[in-house]
């Protein structure tokens, strides 16, 4: 229990201390919000789909969470490079609690980043249907954050060097984001694309966010939450296993 807490605390401290990283990570979502939200809005409205800014804001929040979460999970690679990983590897605590602590920390960090983007979105004109949903928003954001932190650490446990980072960005994070329905509605899209989107856990995260933010969703909310919880559990268990297999 305390091991989980101390691993969580480490991630949180490192996050709070890297102010430039926090601000830097806000740049991209804000850009997306402005360029897509305002830029594509008129086209979207003409097509009879409603207000694109309202539609895309939850997607962008999801984006900032998944980017921060996976990036944070990749910390495992840095730890390996700088040697700290050995300290956790020989520690007499279960691999699951180390992974869980790390993942909780990464989730706190990326969830916070998502909340900052939400704040900016609201300032920029995003209007959730009811502010009473705030608890649900935070829970869903945290679930998304957990899932992708777990994914990040899991993948990083299999990689030896930071060279793999570009690979992860281009072949994991980008596809997960662009094919998730964060940017476009999942109805009336080609069935191949829909199939891919249905396999992408972020689709369910963003869908759940939209459900609580704007009251519109593609999937049943129970399915959304079920998928998020199940996939997170699988990633955590797999991640602990991969972690236990690391050799230095």
């Amino acid at each position: 229990m305390k091991a989980i807490y101390i691993m969580w605390l480490r991630e949180v401290k490192r996050f709070i201390r890297s102010k430039s990283r926090i601000v830097g990570a806000l740049g991209q979502p804000v850009l997306f919000l402005i360029a897509l939200g305002y830029g594509l809005g008129p086209v979207f409205a003409k097509a009879g789909q409603g207000d694109y800014f309202q539609f895309i804001a939850p997607g962008i929040i999801g984006m900032s969470i998944i980017f921060t979460a996976i990036f944070n999970g990749m910390q495992v690679i840095w730890d390996r490079q700088f040697g700290f990983l050995k300290e956790t590897m020989v520690a007499p605590v279960s691999r699951l609690s180390i992974m869980f602590g790390r993942t909780l920390g990464g989730a706190t960090v990326s969830g916070t980043q998502g909340a900052l983007v939400l704040l900016i979105a609201i300032i920029a004109g995003f209007r959730p249907i009811s502010l009473l949903g705030v608890l649900f928003w935070l829970v869903i954001m945290l679930l998304i954050a957990l899932l992708f932190s777990a994914l990040g650490s899991m993948v990083a446990s299999r990689l030896k060097a930071m060279q793999g980072f570009q690979l992860i960005m281009n072949f994991l994070v980008m596809p997960l984001f662009f094919l998730s329905g964060a940017l476009f509605p999942l109805n009336n899209i080609p069935s191949a694309l829909l199939l891919v989107a249905r396999l992408d856990p972020l689709s369910y995260g963003v869908d759940a966010l939209r459900y609580f933010f704007i009251g519109a969703a593609t999937f049943p909310i129970a399915l959304d939450i079920g998928v998020l919880v199940a996939v997170t559990t699988v990633f955590l268990v797999l991640g602990s296993y991969f972690f236990s297999r690391i050799e230095v």
Binding site: I6, R10, F82, G83, F84, K86, E87, A91
Partner: peptide, 23 residues
Amino acid sequence: FQDPSLDDDLTALENLELHGVLY
């Protein structure tokens, strides 16, 4: 260890506390 194994982004005290809790 023979090779470095500290967390550079924590203070000396924090490194020790983390160890103490893990053990």
